[in-house]
Design a protein around this nucleic acid. Structure first.
Lengths: 136, 136
DNA sequence: TATTGACTCTATAGTAACTACAGAGTTTAA
DNA sequence: TTAAACTCTGTAGTTACTATAGAGTCAATA
């Protein structure tokens, strides 16, 4: 059994993050030491690494909680997992499209200012202001 | 002079958002009515639309505050604006790259589960667990 | 004129996923 | 034994809002 500091080292999560996951019901220490320190075993390490991997895929804690509970009750349907991933993919793709559009606009903006001038004549600010007038 | 509700309608921002911007020092009503209602003029409308446009470019409120103060003091250097936009572009591009990578992983994950099975044999969960073991 | 409804005010709490304390207790090594 | 390092709980801060509560203001209607 290891204490929270060692789990943090092994997993690469911070101690605070681990405690946060406990509060969020993702990972609970089943045992405490005499001095009330959390004690973890190998299964806990795996569970935390699972969580970390899911987080690296940008899954929310709520989604991960769902995955973990599915994992814990093996009779549930695989479809549920599939559907969740599917939704997540859509969400990510929407975000990519948005950012790509954004990137274009920012680059156009950058072109409109050739430095060495005072803000008075700054093309970027001018453009931002003009966009405003048009919107209005 | 118009009240906050009308400004909200004109700008497409919510009343709460406008009050939030005031709290964040982006947009202050220079006048109040007898009954202590905020009063706005045309310059305020323009300023709010400017803010909104910047937000649509994903600039943070801190960045917008900076832009507005540059706009308010026309002797400052255009370079500052340029540099900020430059940094923002980099940030957006980094985020796009991350998400693209993420998208690949999610799609690979999706392929590993063919539904109609119980979670026990779900390829997605299996993969997530295996990834854990490898990381460890 | 009284009152209803729509509007506005301030202040506070909630969102997501942490991070960063404070103040206390525990363990370990010198 | 005492100091350093670790852990505990609980609370507040981060971002950009959103959503209340409880009170006050204003315009139109009965």
């Amino acid at each position: 059994m290891i204490k929270i500091g060692e789990l943090a080292k092994i997993s690469g999560c911070s101690v605070e993050t681990i405690r946060h996951y406990e509060k969020e019901q993702l990972l609970a220490a089943k045992l405490r030491s005499d001095g009330n320190f959390r004690l973890y075993d190998h299964a806990d390490i795996e569970r935390l690494l699972f969580i970390k991997h899911c987080r690296s895929l940008d899954l929310s804690l709520a989604e991960i909680r769902q995955l973990l509970s599915l994992n814990d009750s093996p009779m549930s349907q695989c479809d549920d997992v599939n559907q969740m991933i599917e939704q997540h993919i859509e969400q990510v793709e929407r975000r990519i499209a948005d950012l790509t559009q954004l990137n274009k606009q920012l680059k156009a903006l950058r072109l409109s200012c050739n430095s060495k001038r005072t803000v008075e004549h700054c093309g970027i600010l001018k453009q931002l202001n003009e966009a405003v007038s048009q919107t209005n």
